[in-house]
Design a protein around this nucleic acid. Structure first.
Length: 487
RNA sequence: GGCUCCGUCGUCUAGUGGCCUAGGACUCUGGCUUCUCAAGCCAGCUACGAGGGUUCGAAUCCCUUCGGAGCUACCA
């Protein structure tokens, strides 16, 4: 196996859509392994299928990795000695190798049409045979070739699989063996000369001197094809990369993660208000574990602890609840300046604030009292809206609770006490209200403060009442209590 | 169908022959705390897919079986 001293891992997505949870978990492991070994992370775009990969998706993939903090050493935007890193810019390279394979007899031209192949496949299935290319064009005579050409047929390049078997050691699963009987000759390049995944991935991994291939389990059965290409390239077995096939991340119902059973696009989590560190922390726990009972880890701890040996081989189910729990932990651990930086864009986007200095100052004061009450940043606007809203109105569903006689009594007493307060801070407010409502009127705290809470914040669920009143200010609080009384 | 991978609480996992009457986390349930909601604290529920071996001893090793997943493309 590869014995280079410098570890070179690659993350090579085919951006046919927004990067999803599974992609990111792979990227995260690739990144963590590169950093753990102080090796290099190579970011390569597999866009050989330009019908499905768009520039927008490529850019989105780049942005997503950056947002998550998964930086790369070679690839788009940073370049590197083995570029270009977009496969669509490496077409001549693949064409050269395809030609070389043809010249050496490792590959051959196949003139079968898609329809013919499909027809034969159906027949194979019907006869209970393993479907796959039957080798029809393996040894075409010159006459046959001329005949095809005269009919205007354009050939694809197909790799010749020799008899035998391919055995390799997967770093996660151990020895895996494939009999070539079940690995049919596969297509390397289309009739127009454009390469297919099997050609490009193998050529690039060798040319880019990749030492470790950590990728999804779905690619496990394509590994013998890649190894076949290495052989045709004349690569020594000791220079093959080490393969490590990561277990799947699945949805709730044991199916591959999809829109149906949970949001898959990382962009969605970003908008919802999940922190990159929380996403990475959670994803790291899918198929890997730090080994001890500690699960809430930092990116640095992940780097320090991550080894392929500790990666599981069994698939994991994605659990939104646990992600939320971790996100809540991460939010609570945020410093106030960091929390402010994360919170502001959400408040602006929801039009709760416009971004003035006064508003920001107030947000800064309010954040500590909601920090342990939210699970995602997206909940912040609703939590703080009562401080900024111009036309305040009590939630219609809460309104009935205010008109009750007992509530009116509380509000009236509270109003007079609060109006005569000299210092407007939460301790003074709490002190005077407790004295008047709890001690003197003998009310239970939860009863006494409920009406006030609704009057001031508009809902029976809110940040702590006295702090909320302090932040709202004397005038605002008093006028809201007044309007609750007259209502 | 064939090939390949996988199988510990509901979920993520710890566990590599005795430390396991199986540990942690999330969820759920009950309680404490409490100005609401949270947070925090305490307690509880629940698992080695099944069946055979090997062994003094098995979640850990072997076999069979059942289940799940992936691949089986001129997608990646």
């Amino acid at each position: 196996m590869a014995n280079n001293s410098q570890v070179r891992v690659r993350f090579a997505p085919s951006p046919t859509g927004d990067l999803h949870v599974g992609n990111i978990r792979t990227a995260l492991f690739d990144w963590a392994y590169a950093r753990h070994t102080q090796g290099k992370l190579i970011f390569r775009i597999e866009d050989t299928d330009r019908d499905r990969v768009t520039d927008e998706y490529i850019q989105a993939a780049i942005d997503t990795l950056k947002w998550l903090g998964l930086n790369w050493d070679e690839g788009p935007e940073v370049g590197g000695a083995y570029g270009p890193y977009l496969q669509s810019q490496r077409l001549e390279i693949y064409a050269e190798w395809a030609q070389k394979f043809l010249d050496n007899g490792d590959a051959y031209h196949c003139y079968c049409s898609a329809d013919e192949l499909e027809e034969r496949r159906q027949l194979q299935m019907k006869n209970n045979q393993a479907p796959g290319y039957d080798g029809k064009c393996r040894d075409l005579s010159n006459v046959q070739i001329e005949d095809y050409k005269s009919k205007g047929r354009k050939p694809v390049v197909r790799m010749r699989m020799p008899q035998g078997e391919t055995v390799f050691t997967d770093a996660i699963r151990g020895e895996v063996k494939f009999e070539h009987l079940y690995v049919p000759d596969f297509v390397l390049a289309r009739a127009d000369g454009s390469p297919l995944y099997t050609l490009a991935v193998a050529v690039d991994d060798i040319l880019m001197k990749i030492t470790h291939v950590l990728r999804g389990e779905d690619l496990l059965s394509s590994t013998p094809r890649q190894i076949r290409v290495y052989q045709a390239m004349g690569v020594a077995e000791s220079d093959y990369p080490i393969f490590a096939h990561l277990p799947f991340v699945m949805g709730q119902d044991n199916a591959k993660l999809s829109k149906r059973n949970g949001e898959v696009s990382i962009a969605w989590y970003r908008e919802k208000g999940f922190l990159p560190d929380a996403i990475c922390n959670y994803l790291a726990l899918l198929g890997w574990s730090p080994g001890d009972d500690k699960e809430n880890i930092t990116m640095q701890e992940l780097v320090d602890l991550f080894t392929v040996e500790r990666v599981n081989s069994s698939p994991a189910r994605f659990d939104m609840k646990k992600l939320e729990a971790i996100n809540g932990d991460k939010i609570r651990a945020l410093s106030l300046p960091d929390f402010l930086d994360w919170a502001l864009p959400f408040l602006m986007k929801a039009n709760v604030i416009s971004g003035s200095d006064d508003e920001i100052a107030l947000v800064k004061k309010a954040l500590p009292i909601i920090q342990e009450r939210i699970v995602t940043l997206g909940e912040i606007p609703a939590m703080l809206n009562f401080l900024f809203v111009k036309n305040f109105a009590v939630d219609p569903e809460e309104q009935p609770k205010l008109v009750e006689a007992a509530a009116q009594e509380v509000l009236k007493v509270a109003l007079t006490k609060v109006e005569s307060l000299e210092k407007w801070d939460h301790t003074s407010i709490e002190e005077v209200l407790r004295k008047a409502l709890i001690e003197e009127l003998g009310l239970k705290p939860r009863i006494a403060f409920s009406a006030l809470r609704i009057a001031v914040t508009g809902s029976h669920i809110s940040p702590p009442l006295f702090e909320s009143m302090e932040l709202l200010g004397r005038d605002g609080s008093i006028s809201r209590i007044k309007s609750a009384i007259s209502a």
